[in-house]
Amino acid sequence: MMYKPEKLISEKNVRTKTFVGLCFFILFLAGCYLSWNWLQHQPKDQGALRSLRKGLDINESIFTSFFSVERLSKSFGKNLAAPKVRVNGDAGLEDNSDTLNWKLKVVKAPGDTLQISMEEIKSLPKTEVIFDFKCIEGWSQITHWGGVKFSDFLKKYNLTDKEKLKYTGLVTPNDKYYVGVDFKSMLQPQTILCYEMNGKPLPLNQGYPLRLIIPVKYGVKHLKRIGTISFSNERPKDYWYERGYDYYCGF
């Protein structure tokens, strides 16, 4: 086979070959060390080391160009949905008085904001979604939600022209939690403005009165208690993005 036969060489030759090999090896190790050092001392871009942030953004463009965002998340039967739904995080929910006289604000254009009441939202056709909710921490849970398809909502309020824009931004009434989501994922048929959990109104700690459920994203994007929705071509500000996480967070 491809093995060169054994050969005889002088001891000096052995020493030279060993020395040269070791030099390359040490150079390699030094290269590894220096690259690591270079990476670790980079300035941060939105909480992540610059090169890694670039890498995450490249990953997003790879996955959004090669895969269809419309693909559905697996649905489950109601009997599989957890009766006790895990609660994680309460950023944006600090003040429950925000729920009194609550209205959903939708910014159509600067100075042109729609105010929509819960009754109006509930009058739209209801969509139920039962899926495996996945937290960025690594756990998951099958949960059951009900609400209005975001795409139906857009049609009802003549907002379909916004689909030309790249992003939707959502903010809690107190502005303390905020996310940005690519518009294609918002239009995915399982994305709902959600007001029910397990067939009952949302509890306060799950974002009463209205939250986002978007099964193709990690839980961090499922903003609880939506105050304002807006549209833009630039990435809207995003709470966890600023803290070093991926912007896209999509499956």
């Binding site: 992540a48 996480y245 991926d246």
Partner: peptide, 11 residues
């Protein structure tokens, strides 16, 4: 250090 770990892992 979850965010740091994820950014590193996915690059």
């Amino acid at each position: 250090r979850l965010a740091e770990g994820m950014s590193m892992h996915f690059v």
